[in-house]
Amino acid sequence: MSDTTSTTAMVAPVTGSGALVLQLKNVHTFYGAIEALKGISVDVREGEIVTLIGANGAGKSTTLKTISGLLAPKVGEITFMGEKISGMKVHDVAAKRVVQVPEGRRIFPRMTVEENLGMGAFLRTKDPEGVKSTLELVYELFPRLRERRAQKGGTLSGGEQQMLAMGRGMMADPKLLMLDEPSMGLAPVVVETIFETIETLNKAGITILLVEQNAAMALAIADRGYVLETGSVVLQGPGKELLHDEKVRKTYLGEA
């Protein structure tokens, strides 16, 4: 199996000041016989927003699923805070406070907003005070959720459901928050709110791994970005630089 990352065109060397939080080393993931990830290496450092962008089928969501334990890599290794997490079960990864906000707003439609948020804190049994203060924080970030705390999750609008999914992720007090396509299917105004919130969360000290199709928005807020194409990283570098990279502009930002 050839190491495809060696062919990666470097825009800039990987720089980061914080400690390494998450590291993917040459990860290959398969769906049956289909190789969806062909040797991906990604670093996420403490306090960063790192984004994975790429077209449909590039392997963005597969990468997240592999990190969160839904899929196991066949080759390669994933370490979180120096500890190997590849091959772990989903709930064990979640217990390490690597929290995924799944795509498509997977909330619990018949639970109330507050019950939904409560489920996010499922593993924080020893810290009721902390849960309360996180809940307060979530309500401050998303005042709409406070207004609708007693409403059923399924009756919320699309944007509110995405906020709820993110809020539920925060309730776990994540060390690394992984967001899978938070802007999917939302009105542009709502997308802006969501991205502002991501920045706010990051300023509050949460390390974020963001998977997006909306490359312009994602790169604008990201410290670093990786461009994925058919299961390989083809470009990587600081978000702003990628945003101005000619190839990225052509391929993903729709410029002629």
């Binding site: 969160s68 839904l70 989903v90 709930h91 979640a94 217990a95 929290v99 995924q100 906000v101 799944p102 997977r106 909330i107 619990f108 439609p109 018949r110 639970m111 489920m119 996010g120 499922f122 593993l123 999914a165 539920r168 992720g169 776990a172």
Partner: peptide, 11 residues
Amino acid sequence: ENEVAAEACGI
């Protein structure tokens, strides 16, 4: 309600 989301919550 949703097995994937439940797993993501650490259940």
